[in-house]
Deep mutational scan, measured.
Amino acid sequence: KLPPGWEKRMSRSSGRVYYFNHITNASQWERPSGNSSSG
């Protein structure tokens, strides 16, 4: 399961899957890690 705020999306241009955070408006190709504590 993804960390809070993150969701899986697909890029229309490349067709690749990326991850988008609707809370911080951040996007990245790598899967966000939800196990590590923020610090």
Rank of each mutant, 00 (worst) to 15 (best):
K1Y: 11
K1L: 13
K1Q: 14
L2S: 02
P3T: 02
P3H: 02
P3A: 04
P4T: 07
P4V: 08
P4A: 09
P4F: 11
P4S: 06
G5R: 01
G5Q: 04
G5M: 04
G5T: 02
G5F: 06
W6E: 00
W6H: 01
E7L: 07
E7I: 09
E7A: 05
E7K: 05
E7R: 05
E7G: 03
E7P: 01
K8H: 04
R9T: 03
R9D: 02
R9E: 03
R9P: 00
M10H: 13
M10S: 08
M10A: 09
M10T: 15
M10K: 14
M10I: 15
S11C: 15
S11D: 15
S11Q: 14
R12P: 15
R12Y: 14
R12D: 14
R12I: 15
R12H: 15
R12F: 12
R12K: 14
S13A: 11
S13T: 14
S13Y: 13
S14R: 06
S14I: 05
S14P: 05
S14K: 07
S14V: 06
G15M: 06
G15Y: 04
R16V: 06
R16Q: 07
R16A: 06
V17N: 04
V17L: 07
V17F: 10
Y18N: 00
Y18D: 00
Y18Q: 00
Y18A: 00
Y18L: 02
Y19H: 00
Y19M: 00
Y19E: 00
Y19K: 00
F20R: 02
F20T: 02
F20M: 02
F20G: 00
F20L: 03
N21F: 04
N21T: 01
N21H: 04
H22M: 09
H22P: 07
H22D: 04
H22S: 11
H22T: 15
H22R: 14
I23E: 08
I23H: 09
I23W: 08
T24H: 03
T24G: 01
T24E: 03
N25W: 09
N25G: 15
A26W: 11
A26L: 14
A26H: 14
A26Q: 15
A26I: 14
S27V: 15
S27C: 15
S27E: 06
S27I: 15
S27A: 14
Q28S: 08
Q28N: 03
Q28M: 06
W29T: 06
W29A: 04
E30C: 07
E30N: 09
R31K: 09
R31S: 08
R31Q: 06
R31E: 09
P32F: 01
P32I: 01
P32N: 01
S33L: 11
S33M: 11
S33F: 10
S33D: 13
S33Q: 13
S33N: 11
G34R: 10
G34W: 15
N35D: 12
N35G: 12
N35T: 12
N35A: 13
S36L: 12
S36T: 13
S36F: 10
S36P: 12
S37I: 12
S37H: 11
S37V: 12
S38T: 12
S38N: 13
S38C: 15
S38A: 12
G39P: 11
G39T: 10
G39C: 14
